[in-house]
Amino acid sequence: MALRVDTLSYAYGAKKALDAVSFEVFPGAFTALLGPNGAGKSTLFALMTRLFETRDGQITVGGVDLRLKPRDALGQMGVVFQQTTLDLDLTVMQNLRYFAALHGLGGREAGKRIEEALDRLAMRDRAAEKARTLNGGHRRRTEIARALIHHPSVLLLDEPTVGLDASARQSITDHVHSLSASGLTVLWATHLTDEVRDTDPLILLHRGRVIETGLTGALRGDETLSDWFLARTGMPA
């Protein structure tokens, strides 16, 4: 199993944000974590990336327990947060080099991997540009390229298309689907149903609980995914 979350709970004081959340992400699949705003997706991401920690439940990445061996588990993850985490005053290349160094990669090895990652996201000709000059779509591509430098076994993306226009959103969604088709394991959190394909495994999170899991096409049946989502969460997608 690439990623396994087992009976995970978390509360902000008296307010329960996650309630015994369990799911599995299979290797090489593009798994969608669908949930309306406030469902607990960002809290789940904070726990999966160890920004928060809880003793209530377990997270394993590639069989490694995040709480017991946090550094080994984090080393297997590539993460793209909802909010951009680029240093806008640095160039694309400097941002990538900084990230590579945080993962212990330097010198020629880092250079080789950065070029690979830039090629994969068609960003090589932008390497010398300052992050500030990039548009939203290219900033996201840079962040995805960056998250792949250390060859993670699973890529986590928390609502990565927020704030992008329709064409950039489509392009990023297609890109990550194609990365997954080439063998990368992906967990993609979103509240937008048009980013999910029928062949994608789906986890529906609502009010801190997993209420459905399965293949998207099988789950939605004859309904559109948007109607199916609305019927289960009471919210428009």
Partner: peptide, 18 residues
Amino acid sequence: ETGSMRLLLTAPLHRGFL
């Protein structure tokens, strides 16, 4: 607030060292 702290804190190195 800008998010770049997340990048630092999710690096696979000891947090105290970072």
